[in-house]
Structures are given as structure tokens and as C-alpha cells.
Design a protein around this nucleic acid. Structure first.
Lengths: 157, 157
DNA sequence: TATTGTTATACTCTATAACTATA
DNA sequence: TATAGTTATAGAGTATAACAATA
């Protein structure tokens, strides 16, 4: 009965007729379904590493030498600040990232990846790339670039 | 401190630098953020009608004369069957949709919109169209069509 | 006074297993 | 034996308010 027990990508013959419906051209529906398909697939690939998309994105930004504050992470990832606390808690307890008080503003914590965190991130990038390649399978190289460009426009607009 | 208290579309100057990071070209991150922005906006527009994106999509398919079963809704919307139960329960209690046993397979419920449901759906379509127009503001007409085409490819692939 | 991070809390969303009725 | 729907439940994701430290 669980959704995982059915193929998450293709639809059965019985449900295909719903694809012709007006909802199928609704941006809200399309982004929600694209994200659901992609997140499920990516979480499966990340599972052996003990990561999910949620924790991966925090680790990715911690690895990128920008030393973001928790506030910046919350804003960029569109998560509540209280959610960042528990995501960073988890990564910190596993020795993957470290909090460091920002000397310029001692209210802020700057998040940095450890060596161990960077090593795991290298593996995680491969897992995410695998998932992404599967998602983009039906698109040409040009279309892949164009999709990302257009998604960026609506994700940050 | 809640995420709603910050602008959900534009980023503050402090977070803009994160946009240059490699994560910003990650498909998983882009679809997640595009969906988060879009769902938040659409839920705000739907709120006066007592709907959310989740309930809207069920109502939309119920209005489309295809008489989907709950199973088909679950599959198409990528929700668990048990979630469809509570969404249909809510819409049914409000007199917006009706369950009817499928005479060809008496295990199945066919979901149909009532007149009241169709009337509300007309208003909801306008609300969703408003939200979508805001999301697509930065795209040309051609780009809007192209984005939906490419999203369809990854959402159903 | 305002902001960063934190904690506690509650609410929504999603998944799992067990049940019933039909097939 | 398998499938559609239901129920109960638990876990993940998200939002809100209040607080301490700092600005």
C-alpha cells in the first residue's frame, strides 16, 4: 500500500488518462511532482551515506568556503531557522561540520565543513549526480541547461 | 524568526553570495526551492477559499470528468493512498466532492465533484493562475511553455 | 530596540502496517 | 491470492512563540 511499492516514475495504464487533464499543465503541480520524484530518488542514493537531500544541501554550503551563518542557510534554503539548528546539530555530532562564532558579529555562528565532512561530501556529490542524471535522462544537453536556467528564474524570483 | 517574516522570493544582500555556489545549479535544490516558493504563494492565494495546493489538486481532478479512483489519484499525485482518504474526507464533508462505488469494481470509489465543488474550483483556478503568473513573471511566453514541457519530462519520466 | 541562535511546542505532511471488502 | 480503501500510528517536515546573548 505504500507509495514506494508502486513505480514512482512511470504511471500505470489506468492513471495515464489523468495526464491529459488540465492539472497536468499546472506549474504548481508540475514543480511539486518533479520535486517529489527527484527527492525520493536522491534520498535513496544518499541513504548509504547517512544523508538526505535536506542534510546534503547544508553540507554542500558548508563545503563551499563561503562560511555561511545559520541565518543565511535558513534564508537560502527556505527553511525556518529552527530547522537549521537541528540539521547542523546532527551534522556537527557526526563530525562533518563545525560551528564557529563569527568574530565580526558574536551572535552569529559560521558553519564550516571538517575534513571528514568534505570527504563525505565528495561521495554525496556523486550520489546526487547519479540521481540527477536519471531525472534528466529524457532531456538533451541543451534542454538540461535550459531547464536549470528557467528553474533558477522561478526559484529566486 | 519565522521564514514568513523574511521575503520569500528575493534574497537579502548577505545571502546573495550563496547563489554563486555549486549547489545553486543542483537540480534537486532548484526543484525543491521552486516548489517551496510556488507552494507558499499558491497556498496564500487559496487560503480565502479554504483550500491548499494539496486539496486543490484533488478537487481539480474530481472536476475533470475522468472520474478517477482514489488509487489513481494517489498514483498521479504521488501521495500515499492513506493521504487521499483524508483529503477526500475533508472535501466530501464540505460537500465539494462525492465518493461513488464503481459498479465495475465494487472495491473502488470513484471521485466526482459536486456543483458546489465546481463553483469553488472556478475561483480556485483563478487563484492558482494568479500565483503562477507571479512565479513566471520573469519568463517570456515561449520560456513559460518550454519550462512546463521540460518539467513534465522530469516529473513523469 | 532589533537580531542570531536556541528551545519547546504544535501542526502538517508522509509512510507503514493491519484490517475489510471485494476481486 | 491480490487489490481498493480505511484506520491507527509514527516519523519527518514546517511553523510559531519565547528566551538568552549580542548588536
Amino acid at each position: 500500500m505504500a507509495a514506494e511499492h508502486i513505480d514512482e516514475r512511470r504511471l500505470t495504464a489506468t492513471a495515464i488518462r489523468l495526464q491529459g487533464r488540465s492539472l497536468a499543465s499546472d506549474l504548481e503541480f508540475l514543480t511539486a511532482r518533479a520535486r517529489a520524484v527527484g527527492t525520493r530518488r536522491a534520498n535513496e542514493k544518499l541513504e548509504p551515506l547517512g544523508l538526505k537531500v535536506r542534510s546534503y544541501v547544508v553540507l554542500a554550503l558548508a563545503c563551499d568556503d563561503e562560511q555561511p551563518s545559520q541565518r543565511e542557510l535558513a534564508e537560502f534554503l527556505m527553511l525556518d531557522a529552527s530547522q537549521i539548528v537541528s540539521l547542523v546539530d546532527d551534522l556537527e555530532q557526526r563530525g562533518l561540520v563545525a560551528r564557529e562564532v563569527d568574530p565580526r558579529d558574536r551572535r552569529s555562528n559560521v558553519i564550516m565543513a571538517t575534513t571528514k565532512g568534505r570527504q563525505l561530501f565528495t561521495k554525496a556529490q556523486r550520489a546526487i549526480a547519479d540521481a540527477q542524471d536519471e531525472s534528466l535522462r529524457a532531456l538533451s544537453a541543451t534542454e538540461q541547461v535550459e531547464l536549470k536556467r528557467l528553474l533558477t528564474l522561478i526559484a529566486f524570483e
